[in-house]
Amino acid sequence: MTDHTIAGKTVLIAGGAKNLGGLLARDLAAHGAKAIAIHYNSAATAAAAEATVAAVKAGGAEAVAFQADLTHARGVEQLFADAIAAFGRPDIAVNTVGKVLKKPILDISEAEYDEMSAVNAKSAFFFLKEAGKAVNDNGKIVTLVTSLLGAFTPFYASYAGTKAPVEHFTRAAAKEFGARGISVTAIGPGPMDTPFFYGEESPEAQAYHKSAGALSAFSKTGLTDIEDIVPYIRFLVSEGWWMTGQTILVNGGYTTK
């Protein structure tokens, strides 16, 4: 019988230095992961990445941090090569990388669009490509998208619009990798209580988002907390492997498709 536990598994987390990725690294270590490769983007997050490495090691797993710019295919290739050199082929690959921009379509420059597309769509595509080559048979791949994929709203065209292709990337990858027992899923959190949210939203918008979910009154912030998302990822990379090719919105009733 195929082993779908986390214990003894090797993990790669893109965007694993802090926030959701950092908490996920700590959580999977606590649930028995053998080794975790933690990706970070730039020098600005190097200290956070090393703090997560230390926490993972304290939790009983091996860990190394790797810097890479995932907006270029060569950066994604190098990340997987470095992780494999350190720990062997991963059993679990999770991509939490993303960039938010809240802005009217009429005000979005070509440079802004290109950056959003590179961070949210291009990096996700090449992460799936390299994961498909590198992940062991019966492995698990998860990508973070956004619950705005189920919303009818202004100002997020470049954010939700560049996350939307990941839905089809996920479906296609699930079909293509399924013969090797690999599950491929996407999770779309609601507005999360992280610095990315507060940097884009006005006080009035923050108040709206904190009250919009059906379960908002029962959240410590009114928003989706990173602690709300980690158990779903943990489930999908273990016992929840039978779900594949799906985009799952996890948002406390903020929106649905």
Rank of each mutant, 00 (worst) to 15 (best):
V64Q: 12
E112P: 07
G181R: 13
A17L: 03
K18A: 05
A54W: 13
A83Y: 04
W242N: 04
F218A: 13
K122G: 03
A48Y: 08
A46Q: 12
A29W: 06
I187S: 00
D137L: 04
K163F: 03
D91L: 06
I6Q: 13
A63Y: 08
G59T: 05
A186Y: 00
D225F: 12
N136L: 05
A17D: 04
A14F: 11
L12C: 10
R74P: 00
H31W: 11
E110P: 01
Y198F: 07
Y40V: 01
L24Y: 02
A68P: 12
T2D: 12
L20E: 00
A46P: 01
A124W: 00
A86Q: 14
G59N: 12
T146L: 09
A29I: 05
V145P: 00
T2S: 13
R171W: 06
L79I: 09
A14G: 10
A157V: 06
F87L: 07
F152I: 05
I233H: 01
I141P: 01
E227M: 13
A43E: 04
G60C: 07
E130D: 09
T96E: 02
S117M: 13
T170G: 06
K220N: 12
Y113N: 14
S211V: 05
N120S: 10
L24G: 00
Y113A: 11
T244N: 04
T45A: 12
D225G: 15
M192F: 09
T143N: 11
T170V: 09
I187A: 01
V166W: 01
A48E: 06
A33Y: 10
V11F: 07
F197K: 04
P191Q: 11
E130Q: 08
N120L: 02
Q78R: 06
G245K: 05
A25I: 02
S219Q: 05
E50A: 08
F127K: 02
S202F: 03
A68R: 10
V119F: 14
S219H: 09
T5L: 15
L20A: 07
F235V: 00
F125R: 01
T194S: 05
S238Y: 15
D91G: 10
H39E: 13
S117P: 07
T256Y: 11
G16E: 11
L148M: 11
I108E: 15
T96S: 10
A172P: 00
T71C: 14
F126A: 06
H39L: 14
S147I: 02
G59E: 07
I187Q: 00
F80S: 04
N251L: 04
I92R: 06
D91Y: 13
K102A: 15
A172V: 10
P165V: 01
F126W: 03
F87T: 01
G240P: 00
G75L: 01
W242G: 02
D107N: 11
G245Q: 01
S216P: 05
I108K: 08
A157L: 02
R74T: 06
G139E: 07
L223W: 14
L128M: 08
A134Y: 05
W241R: 15
V250T: 06
L223E: 02
A73M: 04
E130K: 06
T170D: 03
G199P: 06
V53M: 15
E227W: 14
A46T: 02
I141W: 08
A93N: 13
P231F: 15
G252L: 09
N138Q: 12
K99E: 14
K210E: 07
G252S: 10
G178M: 12
A29L: 08
L148T: 03
H39A: 03
N138R: 13
V237Y: 09
